[in-house]
Amino acid sequence: MLMEFLVVSVLNGAIYGMLLFMVSAGLTLIFGMMGVLNFAHASFYMLGAYIAYTLSALGHFWLGLLLAPVLVGLLGVLVERFLLRRVHAFGHAHELLLTFGLAFIFEELVKLFYGNFPVDYRMPEALRFTAFTVFGTDYPFYRLFIGGTAIAMFALLYLLLSRTRVGLVVRAAERLPQTAEALGHNVPLVFMGVFGTGAALAGLAGGVAGAFFPTSPNMALELGVIVFVVVVVGGLGSLEGSLLASLMIGLFSSFAVGLDWSLAGALDAVGLGGWAREMGGLMTTTLSSIAGSVPFLLMLVVLLLRPAGLMGERS
């Protein structure tokens, strides 16, 4: 029984964590390189899902997975080139507000074209099979597909940033823009590339995960806040941190749902359980019922005690 709970929770949590990582990777990349806290990032994820949905409805699931990152990445490039760059001089708060407005617009546009309800975006029949069975529960192959995509994404980004000149140039452009410029690097182009790449990653995440998790106009808002938690806890700008925080929050969410721990229960150990139960309120609130709050508590603790996050460099 316990073993089953453990294994199933780990498997589910890891996949949710992988989804969080796919979306937060681009966000943390953009913040780390450009200092822009992109409120529209989860919207890119949503747009990716809707683009992939549109094509899969026309019978081109795989083409959808290809076009989702390409088109969303292109949109990201346009946003950076024609909108963000205009307000760059006004400072980071202004950039943040602009992306905040864009998130609003993207959500309403999706509602305009697809309606204010979830759409039926599904994986093709060919991918709808069981990978393996644990404790009598079938484990769908598609979950492994999501996890695999996330791992491939992490590996690719990690190699790109640590092993190639691209990473070097990007880092130079962020830390010493003038010097990088003087060395002949086109800093605005680098920023455009970073923003476009970040958007494309979110678009790909949407295309892949949208077929498994619900695709609806709310998905950006729902995921958007939790993705902020991930990048803050992991350390704004740290790819490894994002991976770690994603898995942590994914696993926590999946475990917490199955646990009816409460403060009163904990106080039983010291004989105060009865008193606590009489108090009621927060004392008898179970962990599963406040599972949604814990990530924000974690985010607060990290922001206040270690704003650089788990793996961030600067404090």
Binding site: L37, L96, L300
Partner: peptide, 9 residues
């Protein structure tokens, strides 16, 4: 930005 994030959380 960190202030904004604290208020959001």
């Amino acid at each position: 930005v960190y202030f904004s994030l604290v208020t959001l959380a």
